[in-house]
Computed example of a mutant assay.
Amino acid sequence: MRKTAFTFALLSATTLMSITALTALAPRSAHAATMPMSENAVPSGVLSLSAQASNEVAQDVVDITLFYEQEASDAGSLTDALNKRTAAALAQAKGVAGVSARTGTFSISPSTDRNGHISAWRGRTEVVLESRDFAAASKLAGQLNTTMQVGNVAFSLSPEAQRATADKLTGDAIASFRKAAESATRAFGYGGYTIREVNIGSEMPSPRPMFAMRAMAAPEAAPLPIEAGKARVTVNVSGSVQMSR
């Protein structure tokens, strides 16, 4: 559902609006008329306002993190075992169309006994799957879950979907900004306005984790159940206009 909203600021004793930057609606005295305006003074009849448009969009990218942990008596053999597990997962992922795979975190750390001596080494390796094909990613994750464990699933909005949504919302936010300016201009008895300055910005959603878990590897290659949610994209338009009689 798309939503638009606007706010504006002006000084008025008969409305609930609050003013920003309106300085000289009252007639000037003869003495004030002869005083030169400071370079930093704000002209009279300036209205500051802002508008917003937002919409919820279905997330179209999934990232699935799988991990494998192991202990060994020496760091060398542990590193070799972790590398082999990672290489096997990456090779299997390469055969699946529409799914990309990359290495994630790789770490090895020592375990010490009560005397402070190294008694073992513990390591962890990760493989991250990324795809817009949820079914293909789910199936592959289920297959890899027989040798690795699912650690995290996160959904996000692709850059292309973000740009397309923001482009459409920008027009809505600008239209709301102009409508607010026209309404306020008439309400304060002015005949028109010109735009002094305007700023356009967007708020993009961050990836949303679905869950994080440390489960035992599944005995069967069942697809991983995943379902994306929606992300809200917002465009803000703010600035000021010069009202004229």
Rank of each mutant, 00 (worst) to 15 (best):
R2H: 07
A5C: 06
A9G: 02
T15H: 12
T15K: 15
L16E: 01
M17L: 11
S18V: 09
T20C: 04
A21K: 08
A21V: 04
R28Q: 04
S29F: 09
A30T: 04
S44K: 08
L47I: 06
S48N: 06
S48G: 05
L49S: 04
A51G: 03
A51P: 01
Q52E: 07
Q52L: 15
N55C: 12
N55T: 05
E56M: 14
V57H: 10
A58F: 11
V61A: 12
D63R: 15
I64C: 11
E69S: 11
A72Y: 02
S73N: 06
D74Y: 07
T79H: 10
T79W: 03
A91G: 06
V96S: 12
G98F: 13
T105L: 14
F106M: 13
S119R: 12
S119N: 08
G123Q: 04
G123E: 00
G123C: 07
E126R: 14
V127F: 15
V127P: 02
L129K: 08
D133V: 09
A137S: 07
A137P: 02
K139P: 00
K139I: 04
A141I: 07
N145T: 03
S156E: 01
S156F: 07
S158F: 09
S158T: 04
E160P: 01
R163I: 03
T165M: 13
D167E: 05
A175S: 10
A175K: 12
S176I: 04
K179H: 08
A181P: 00
A181M: 06
T185I: 07
A187D: 01
F188S: 07
G191A: 14
R196E: 01
E197T: 12
E203T: 10
M204H: 05
P205Q: 09
P207F: 15
R208S: 10
P209K: 11
M210W: 10
A215N: 06
A221M: 10
I226C: 09
T234Q: 13
T234E: 03
V237Y: 10
S240A: 15
S244D: 01
S244V: 13
